[in-house]
Design a protein around this nucleic acid. Structure first.
Length: 542
RNA sequence: GCCCCGGUAGCUCAGCUGGAUAGAGCAACAGCCUUCUAAGCUGUGGGCCACAGGUUCGAAUCCUGUCCGGGGUACCA
């Protein structure tokens, strides 16, 4: 059981003894160590209810809590009515043992045990290489999947794409145009065409593989382009450690019978009408300011339609938790998908849609506009080559997904050398080095070490941080914001570096050395565990 | 117009399910390596938490309004 639960129980017992009831109260780590380790506002909340002085109530509660020296060393009350708990070093010392003994509490959660989850992310159509913008979503999605796995979920990583739409047609035409240019023929060039060099390369390859006799409108242009681009996308994803379990193709969801059945279901709810020879979804009756087209007058489905069918399919697959990760361009359309699913009778409370803001790229202070079609973008590959996989992942994870991430390319490399990710990795490598050093001097880990020898301020502080890990993981499962993990690992690493400068591990004092080896081993385990969740390497040497 | 996000140190950002003195990194300045990795540690300077109201014992955090910035608002996906 974790520390908070233990103290919480003390409080509840005390309240019962005093015949006090309260709906909810806060028990959290004290921001200022002066006040102890944990503080609660329960007396302040109660004061309002019973109309009495909060200090008076706090003192009563304080007296009703027994001091158990293995956990609590002190309780005190401070104005305006906080009750503060100081935790016994004995408790923190026991944390190190738990971590070393691989206590499950530190290595896995049980909330998702026996449950399934699906995380849909990236979902870029194969019209060009992944950009830096896609990278943010890719890394966030993969890490959220890791977080769910840590909590016991059986996670499916899914990539949804569309290779049948207008954009793909233009892609094929763009390649064809380059192909004929390559053969020295003059072709009509449209501004709509994709302009990146990768298009030229694909065209050159078609010349090489299929010769010079491919005709205008041949399906080969699009087919080869899609294959090439898709394999490139997969390589890029693999490059930063991401592997999807399922690739879902829109084609499988726009079959006539599926479309008809969906339209009919919605029509029965009075949400469908025809106008201007198109089929409309009456989003105004669901609070939107305008209705949306589901089937264009040409008879083709508009993109919302397959999205709805696709999501219905995911619901039918009966996951316990569905997560969609979209860029902010979806902000307006996903509520329509959700409302349609609700209208169809699905319980959307187990669907979580996470919207992240786009990456704003600047080059020497000037904004770089990103457009796949105009080939104005920086590819994810280029970025990874520039700064490395670990930095890319960390960079995208350390900021909240609601921030408009500002990324200056000229500073990217510069910043990477001072990047906080090295701070974490360095802590891990340093520990490995100390352990090696100990081995060279015949001082190794001994499970009969004396935990009570760990009593230096820097040691206590480090143990306190270790104790936080499961709690951080629990809050991240709620918020689905990986940045809490990066923030936590920073403070953990900081506590370790401080410990390192103040306490020598390998010394002539063998018992103390062994106790400290236990402490740094536990620290190493948690650092590695955290980095693993982030998909970042924990190096043994740097 | 409508919707979503943001506005915290010179810069990039934490902190935001309300708590006690607002933090980190970078940049600037001053220190610390004859013993485990200086990619580290210690210290100094730097803030009307955009602005104005409100709720509260208590607001950077919640509510309302204003201003500024980013994005979205297609019978493109």
């Amino acid at each position: 059981m974790n520390l908070k639960n233990i103290v919480n129980r003390y409080l509840i017992n005390a309240l019962e003894k005093l015949n006090l009831t309260v709906k909810s109260f806060d028990l959290s780590s004290s921001k200022n160590p002066k006040f102890g380790d944990l503080s609660t506002n329960v007396a302040l909340i109660l004061a309002k209810q019973v109309r009495r002085n909060p200090m008076e109530i706090a003192r009563k509660i304080e007296q009703a809590i027994p001091i158990d020296n293995s956990i609590l060393s002190e309780i005190n009350v401070t104005p305006p009515g906080f009750i503060n708990f100081r935790i016994s070093p004995i408790y923190y010392q026991s944390i190190v043992q738990q971590i070393i003994n691989k206590d499950k509490h530190f290595y896995t959660g049980n909330i998702g045990k026996g449950k399934t989850a699906n995380v849909e992310f990236v979902s870029a159509n194969p019209t060009g290489p992944l950009s830096v913008g896609h990278g943010r979503q890719a890394v966030i999605g993969d890490t959220i999947a890791n977080i769910l796995q840590w909590h016991g979920y059986d996670v499916t990583r899914e990539y949804y794409y569309n290779d049948g739409g207008k954009q793909m047609r233009i892609l094929g035409e763009s390649v064809a145009a380059r192909y004929f240019q390559e053969l020295g023929q003059s072709v009509e060039w449209s501004d709509d065409y994709y302009q990146g060099d990768y298009i030229k390369n694909i065209a050159k390859n078609i010349v090489k593989e299929f010769g010079e006799k491919v005709k205008i409108g041949d399906a080969i242009f699009r087919k080869v382009a899609e294959e090439r681009i898709f394999s490139n996308i997969r390589n890029t994803l693999e490059y930063i450690g991401i592997i999807h379990d399922i690739f879902s193709n829109e084609k499988d969801f726009i079959k006539p019978n599926k479309i008809e059945s969906l339209i009919e279901s919605l029509r029965q709810k009075g949400l469908i009408y025809e106008a201007d020879s198109a089929t409309w979804y009456k989003t105004t009756s669901l609070g939107k300011d305008q209705d949306r087209v589901l089937i264009k007058s040409s008879g083709e489905p508009a993109y919302r339609l397959p999205d709805i069918i696709y999501h219905r399919d995911k619901f039918e697959r009966n996951y316990d938790l569905l997560i969609d990760i979209f860029g902010s361009d979806h902000i307006d359309s996903y509520p329509d998908v959700v409302s349609a699913l609700e209208a169809l009778g699905y319980n959307t409370s187990n669907l979580r849609v996470l919207i992240h803001q786009f990456v704003t790229l600047t080059k020497g202070g000037e904004k770089v506009k990103m457009s796949t079609r105009k080939a104005e973008f920086v590819t994810l590959d280029e970025l990874i080559n520039l700064v490395g996989k670990d930095v890319v992942r960390y960079f995208f994870l350390m900021r909240g997904m609601n921030t408009h991430l500002n990324f200056d390319l000229e500073l990217a490399q510069d910043q990477s050398e001072k990047n906080p990710v090295f701070y974490l990795q360095y802590a891990h490598a340093r520990i490995c080095n100390i352990i090696r050093h100990g081995e060279q001097h015949g001082i190794t880990f001994d499970k009969n070490y004396g935990p009570s020898l760990l009593s230096h301020d820097a040691e206590i502080e480090l143990m306190k941080q270790l104790n936080q890990f499961p709690e951080i993981m629990a809050t991240v499962l709620e918020s689905l914001e990986p940045r809490s993990i990066t923030n936590y690992l920073q403070t953990l690493a900081s506590s370790f570096h401080k410990f390192y400068t103040e306490c020598h591990v390998i010394t002539e004092d063998i018992p103390l050395s062994q106790a400290r080896i236990a402490l740094i081993s536990a620290t190493k385990n948690i650092l590695a565990e955290g980095l693993d969740i982030l998909g970042i390497n924990a190096p043994k040497r740097m």
